[in-house]
Amino acid sequence: MKKIKCYNYKIDKNDFVNAGKVSSEIKKNLKKIGFTNRIIRRIAVISYEGEMNIIIHSEGGEIDFEIYEDKIILKINDKGPGIDDVNLAMTEGYSTAPSEIRELGFGAGMGLPNINNCSDNFNITSSKNGTKIESTICLE
């Protein structure tokens, strides 16, 4: 299927000041194109959780955001150190975020489950070199 548009966003580790900026950009672009609120909301949740995961847990990374005629794909990739136990990380409420981060309201242990719940297709692989998430949303 034809790729209509493609965006790439770099995200730095520990960049809490700019947290949410990428998701906000993605949302703006989707609104401009004219997607429904329901689709925009799902993608906003996926990109925000992906962005926060990179900021809190990784050495930095990027989000590729691809729009096709029939679907949207978000590729959320970071540079490591990877997730020890991916199954555990997919459990709602399980978090490895430090306490000072949790006090700010992050690290609820809902990041990956939220991404999964908002995706029609969800795939995650992780090694010490990085975590790769691919989330697909089918367009109705």
Binding site: A19, L104, G105
Partner: peptide, 23 residues
């Protein structure tokens, strides 16, 4: 908890919280 709010709060809501930081 921001992730819980993200996934559950409906649009056009008033959000009541004790969180104060930028995010």
């Amino acid at each position: 908890l921001l992730s819980v709010v993200m996934s559950n709060a409906k649009e056009n809501s008033i959000w009541i919280t004790i969180q104060t930081h930028l995010n």
